[in-house]
């Protein structure tokens, strides 16, 4: 039997292997934990979500400021628009008294759809990375 022990009396060579018990692949840190523990990474994702939501909100409000807030300015700057009639109906009254409401509802619905989409995308991403 061939001896593993060197002749000069040094300690025998030992074969080092990892124990099989309880080994696991080095775990990726789940994103949910990152979010929960407010690590830098979680913070980055959250800022991204907030920025996307805020950009959407700002777009909607910008449309409102121009579309709704611009109307008094138009009446102010162009007095002819104040008495404009379309199909013998006063345009200003029709726009401000009635037409504005369905438009507002459409804007609100489109906002809800987009905001929900941003959130589902975020949720999807978190689940994928977790």
């Amino acid at each position: 039997m061939p001896s593993l022990t060197p002749s000069d009396g040094a300690p025998a060579r030992v074969r080092v292997i990892g124990s099989r018990k309880g080994t696991r692949a080095p775990a990726r840190r789940p994103l949910q934990a990152e979010l929960r523990d407010h690590t830098e990474l979680g913070e980055v994702y959250l800022r991204g979500l907030m920025r996307a939501q805020f950009r959407l909100a700002a777009t909607i409000l910008g449309l409102g400021v121009i579309g709704l807030g611009g109307l008094p300015m138009v009446f102010w700057l162009f007095p002819a628009t104040r008495t404009l009639r379309v199909f013998d109906l006063p345009l200003a009254w029709i726009v401000i008294g009635a037409a504005i409401y369905p438009v507002t509802v459409l804007v609100a619905i489109s906002y809800v759809r987009r905001a929900t989409k941003i959130e589902s995308d975020f949720t999807e991403m978190v689940k994928r990375l977790s």
Binding site: Q32, R36, G42, Q53, V126, K127
Partner: peptide
């Protein structure tokens, strides 16, 4: 502040555990 804002903006689908 960071913790509170996370709670205000994180969608419901994401479990925030202790938050």
């Amino acid at each position: 502040t960071a913790r509170t804002l996370a709670r205000l903006h994180t969608p419901e689908g994401v479990e925030l555990g202790s938050l």
